[in-house]
Write a protein that binds this DNA or RNA. Structure first.
Length: 256
DNA sequence: AAATTTCGCAACCGCTGTCAC
DNA sequence: GGTGACAGCGGTTGCGAAATT
């Protein structure tokens, strides 16, 4: 199938977003929503293609995005989920409230992958050559600190930017319990810290997935983060995730 | 202190899936 | 059923900043 380019290259801006562009986009989405990404930049008066606007919103401007370093529990969760799901970053992201697929993908490729690979080797030494240089996204986040910049509220170091009445209102209690489970273990991970996961985290996580699948395949409610996404493949993926999780649970039970 | 190397992150590109006509 | 438009996803890249030499 031949497709037109996602946007006309002529006259459209590329590269890093400015604070003004961010504010324009946020203001427009808050007012009109984002039912049509392709038309949105024109309506908002942005010289960007819809794809770029969507990406910026999803990965950075959404109010429910959790900023700051990944906790060791989150990192462990990513490793576990990646082992089950492979490079299905969006699916993994759906299990980590407030984290984006892009962010998770970056974290994986930058250090989790190395850590995972080195830990899978017999004499592996996960010795990072460098320490983390700064809180995640601090650089660009500062550009957002403006009068109307709602997302600036999600500043680096903030532990959990979403609130129950916010955009995640469609998220289930399970998401929140997972989030709090992740949060409760507290502090951001230091590189020297061995990542260890509280047993209760996985038992909770597995329990909730088993519970949610108890009445069939109604898992989308439980895990869905973005209710706006109409994709039925999400439901299907949830089904498989649940299945994987159950399988893991069953295996672990059978080993007892 | 300067040059070089390495890392982390934001953004882009191209492909696929879904939906409407 | 075929086609085109759109949204979404995953891989990749470019660049700025930090660490190292």
């Amino acid at each position: 199938m031949v497709r037109a380019p996602c946007c006309e290259k002529m006259g459209l801006k590329r590269g890093p977003w400015t604070a003004e562009e961010d504010m324009t986009l946020v203001a427009h989405i808050e007012q009109h929503g984002h039912s049509n990404w392709r038309a949105l930049p024109k309506q908002a008066g942005l010289l960007r293609c819809g794809k770029s606007c969507r990406l910026r919103w999803i990965n950075y401007l959404r109010p429910d995005i959790k900023r700051g370093n990944f906790t060791s529990d989150e990192e462990e969760a990513i490793i576990q989920l990646h082992a089950m799901l492979g490079n299905r970053w969006s699916t993994i992201a759906a299990r980590l409230p407030g984290r984006t697929d892009n962010e998770i993908k970056n974290v994986w490729h930058t250090h989790l992958k190395k850590r995972f690979e080195s830990s899978s080797k017999p004499s592996g030494q996960a010795a990072p050559k460098r320490k983390a240089k700064k809180p995640a996204v601090a650089a660009t986040a500062s550009a957002l600190e403006g009068p109307t910049s709602e997302p600036a509220a999600s500043s680096p170091g903030q532990s959990l930017s979403m609130s129950p009445g916010q955009s995640l209102s469609t998220s289930s209690a399970a998401d929140y319990s997972m989030a709090s489970s992740l949060e409760n273990t507290g502090s951001s991970s230091s590189e020297s810290e061995e990542f260890q996961i509280d047993d209760s985290f996985w038992s909770e996580t597995l329990a909730m997935s088993v519970h949610s699948s108890g009445s069939g395949m109604e898992t989308s409610d439980t895990f869905g983060v973005d209710s706006a996404s109409p994709s039925s493949s999400n439901d299907e993926m949830d089904f498989w995730v649940t299945l994987f999780m159950q399988a893991g649970d069953i295996q672990s039970l059978s080993q007892i």
